[in-house]
């Protein structure tokens, strides 16, 4: 296979080079992406071994194999491993060009597989939304997984990521809210999810909405003060990339940059429970008890 079909190294693919190629034909699968033209437009990353493409490609292949019948289930498996396999800083992850590369050059097949789109009256032929290729961090096919892992992990523990990514509403609505930039808030919501205080998507959304709305007057950061994350520990974890093995059947280890103190999360949960039960949103199952 040529480098055009199977890139050896990750690179940056500028928006300007992408825009013209995400035609309806491409998004319905009728046309192929012009890989040669895209390859030409790419800008190389530094020489670090972190950017070896097979690391990521292998994970994507394994995800598509394991969850062939249930692509949505792949998120909980892939998110922590993509994060642990693609070791980078938030600064690097904020660069949309890297995610463009993953979606258009490295694994467009994954995007089609995971986000096929639904036929509608207006668009009878299903097409992949262009935002899955090139878009906001919470919609782009790969960025959403990496950021979910980054925002929902608890220090080196990826278990909360599995829980969160097992619920599509956590990924689709909660991930983009600023409230989860406060780790204790994110962990408290995940705790409520794993304790089944909230269960279905509608309940997740109601809780997130209540917390987000009350967040206009409440400083959760003052009520539940987080530890300062250890940026140096994160750096060390990035540099260890070549010495660790990526487990498929157990969770990898995340950066040991300090877990959220348990007491802080526990202190926040009653507040959220109160907001949730007192929220009078129509249509929610009133029998839900906490």
């Amino acid at each position: 296979m040529t480098d055009v079909e199977r890139p050896e190294r990750l690179a940056l693919l500028p928006d300007a080079a992408v825009a013209g190629h995400l035609t309806v034909g491409v998004r319905t699968g009728a046309e192929k992406l012009p890989q040669a033209a895209l390859a030409k437009a790419c800008l190389p990353l530094d020489a670090s071994s972190r950017w070896e493409a097979p690391r990521v490609r292998d994970l994507v292949d394994e995800a598509m194999r394991r969850f062939a019948d249930l692509p949505t289930k792949a998120d909980a498996w892939l998110a922590p491993r993509l994060h642990a396999g693609l070791r980078m800083t938030r600064r690097e992850a904020s660069d949309g060009r890297l995610w463009n590369f993953l979606a258009l050059r490295l694994a467009p097949d994954y995007v089609f597989w995971r986000h096929p789109g639904r036929p509608s009256v207006e668009k009878p032929v299903p097409e992949v939304s262009s935002g899955r290729f090139r878009g906001a961090f919470h919609t782009q096919a790969f960025a959403r997984l990496w950021w979910a892992a980054e925002l929902f992990r608890n220090g080196d523990d990826y278990e909360p990521v599995e829980v969160a990514c097992g619920n599509q509403d956590m990924l689709n609505t909660t991930l983009r809210l600023e409230i989860v930039h406060h780790r204790p808030t994110a962990q408290a919501i995940i705790q409520m999810l794993s304790r089944q205080t909230i269960r279905v998507g509608r309940e997740v959304n109601a809780l997130a909405k209540a917390v987000n709305t009350a967040g206009s007057t409440l400083m959760y950061e003052i009520i539940a003060c987080d530890e300062v994350q250890d940026a140096d520990a994160y750096r060390c974890w990035i540099e260890e990339i070549d010495t660790v093995y990526m487990p498929y059947d157990s969770l990898p280890e995340g950066p040991d940059d300090i877990r959220v103190p348990e007491a802080v999360v526990e202190a926040l949960i009653p507040t959220f429970e109160k907001l949730y039960t007192e929220a009078p949103v129509r249509g929610r199952d009133k029998r839900t008890t906490v």
Partner: peptide, 13 residues
């Protein structure tokens, strides 16, 4: 309409 509030009114702006 109280039943359309996402959260108790006194908790938000």
């Amino acid at each position: 309409d109280v039943t359309s509030h996402p959260v108790a009114a006194h908790m938000a702006m």
